[in-house]
Design a protein around this nucleic acid. Structure first.
Length: 482
RNA sequence: CGGAGUUUAGCGCAGCUUGGUAGCGCGCCUGCCUUGGGAGCAGGAGGUCGCAGGUUCGAAUCCUGUAACUCCGACCA
């Protein structure tokens, strides 16, 4: 068999070097470019369009669960940050400060927000007086800054885009319910729209958000077996309410502190989308999120061109009427083969080829991005078939990702076994934990993996701590993580 | 923030050891031609060699500093 011809825009195979594959893919698919500021990237139109699609879907879900959007300032007075001790300690190393304006020193330094619990907490203290003001359910779409030591496009950049929900409730029970509800919203979105299976669970104390009582996460597995936290939801207890004096008068005429929550999903999810579905030909986008679901490539010499284009335009209309997001690439200076490779690299789920031979046969050629399968469809059936195919691609992509995750998840009885699973076999390891921070730290030191979360629904229980051998309090997923 | 590597045309690279007027492939532009898996021919444009100093008659090349990026470790969404 002849070796596959090397593409002009060749990308490094995943098996050769996964990191280089990732950089090659996002660069050549034109999702981003490096910015002149260290650790910052430009979201190019194709990359930003993906984020917009994510925003749209998530925003609809937030609204459906009773949340409204608002916008809070980028700058945070130093005194605000200091009000919550654990919080400020958690973020201090990565805070940029504004110290002067127009050459004059500021009275009080302003941090560029790493997250907005503090400013929002302050505002909530002004807005909340009675139990009738609760619950207060607000979300913000914003950019935040965390000056990271080591950056990687989409996954860890000094500035990133995200959404942060902040809610205040009259009771602990209600706030805890909100925390879990939003984790479910994330799960539903990531699994059904992005085709990324996740593991829901609670973070261990050492991995929780600074200032939170409890942090929950959804964890996803990349194709190199590393974990990526796809979303988090925090129950903040009364911590921020006490620091910012968010009090209300309850039905019983008692002044009480509100219980607050916060939850976020960032542009990091784009990294997951790329690393869960991408392959050696480039990106692979699930139909529900793909800005373009079908690319039409007209084929054939100049003399048949008019006829082909007329038929292609008819198909375009039929597809648009069926609410399919479709585009045509009718450029004549590029060969069909070039376009095939180009749109596969860009991850378009479905390609429609139309040439004179198809027209003579009354059919069109369809090619799936996920399986590479080609099939011919009668022209009259194109729209209905494509709608069905897009559905099938959507569910196939999820099933494939789920099978991959299961295949690379194993139980670890000992720390050596755990190390083998996360390093050699490149996967997730399920292990028992006694609840001691030192044991968790030991696993990290010896295996290079961290605890991802304590799953709500563990596939098995392990009765001893993988580090010390004492009875386990929890069953934990460990993995190397992004 | 530590260890290693890279930085020369839009992209990928050679040239550096041994200093002497900067090269290749792809892409780009023009024309002809061509279209079912990254076409062909001809002509053409494009670089103060990451940046700042230094050595030298002369620096992409040698020396010092600095920045960005990549990989590996410690921290994080």
């Amino acid at each position: 068999m002849a070796p596959e011809k090397e593409f002009v825009k060749a990308i490094t195979p995943q098996s050769e070097d996964f990191s280089r594959w990732y950089i090659d893919t996002i660069t050549k698919a034109d999702l981003m470019d490096y910015a002149p500021v260290r650790g910052c990237i430009v979201f190019k139109p194709d990359g930003y369009e993906l984020w917009e699609a994510i925003q749209q879907d998530l925003d609809r879900r937030f609204k459906a669960t009773g949340h409204r959007n608002a916008y809070f300032p980028l700058f945070i007075p130093e005194s605000f940050l200091e009000k919550e001790k654990e919080h400020v300690e958690g973020f201090n190393p990565e805070l940029p400060w504004v110290t002067e304006v127009g050459g004059e020193k500021l009275e009080e330094r302003l941090a560029v927000r790493p997250t907005s619990e503090t400013v929002i907490g302050y505002m909530y203290s002004q807005w909340i007086q009675s139990y009738r003001d609760l619950p207060l359910l607000i979300n913000q779409w914003a950019n935040v800054v965390r000056w990271e030591k080591r950056t990687l496009p989409f996954l860890r950049t000094s500035e990133f885009l995200w959404q942060e929900g902040h809610t205040a409730h009259a009771t602990e029970e209600e706030a805890r319910e909100e925390t879990r509800k939003m984790l479910d919203v994330y799960t539903e979105f990531v699994e059904s729209t992005l085709c990324i299976p996740v593991i829901k669970g609670q973070k261990t104390p050492s991995e929780k958000f600074p200032g939170a009582v409890a942090t929950y996460s959804i964890e996803s597995m990349m194709k190199d077996g590393k974990a990526l936290q796809a979303g988090t939801s925090h129950y903040l207890g009364e911590n921020f309410a006490r620091s910012f004096d968010i009090q209300f008068l309850d039905k019983d005429n008692e002044r009480k502190f509100a219980h607050t929550t916060s939850w976020g999903m960032s542009t990091r999810i784009l990294g997951a989308l790329i690393m869960v579905h991408g392959d050696d030909r480039g990106l692979q986008l699930p139909p529900k999120i793909a800005p373009t679901q079908v690319i039409v490539i007209p084929i054939g010499p100049a003399k048949t061109r008019e006829r082909v284009l007329a038929a292609a335009n008819e198909l375009m209309s039929a597809l648009q009427n069926a609410n399919v997001r479709v585009k045509m690439d009718a450029r004549v200076d590029l060969s069909p083969g070039w376009k095939f490779n180009e749109y596969e690299l860009r991850g378009i789920p479905l390609r429609l080829e139309l040439g004179p031979r198809d027209l003579d046969a009354g059919q069109a050629m369809l090619a799936r991005r996920d399986t590479g399968a080609k099939l011919t469809v009668p022209l009259a059936d194109v729209a209905t078939q494509i709608v069905a195919l897009l559905d099938d691609i959507q569910s196939s992509m999820y099933e494939r990702a789920l099978a991959f995750q299961k295949e690379h998840s194993k139980r670890a009885q000992s720390i050596d076994e755990l190390a083998t699973i996360v390093r050699q076999e490149r996967g997730f390891a399920l292990a028992g934990w006694c609840g001691n921070d030192a044991c968790e730290a030991l696993v990290k030191e010896k295996t290079g993996s961290t605890s991802r979360n304590i799953p709500f629904d563990p596939p098995a229980h392990i009765d001893h701590c993988v580090a010390c051998g004492h009875p386990a309090q929890h069953t934990v997923w460990y993995a190397r993580a992004y």
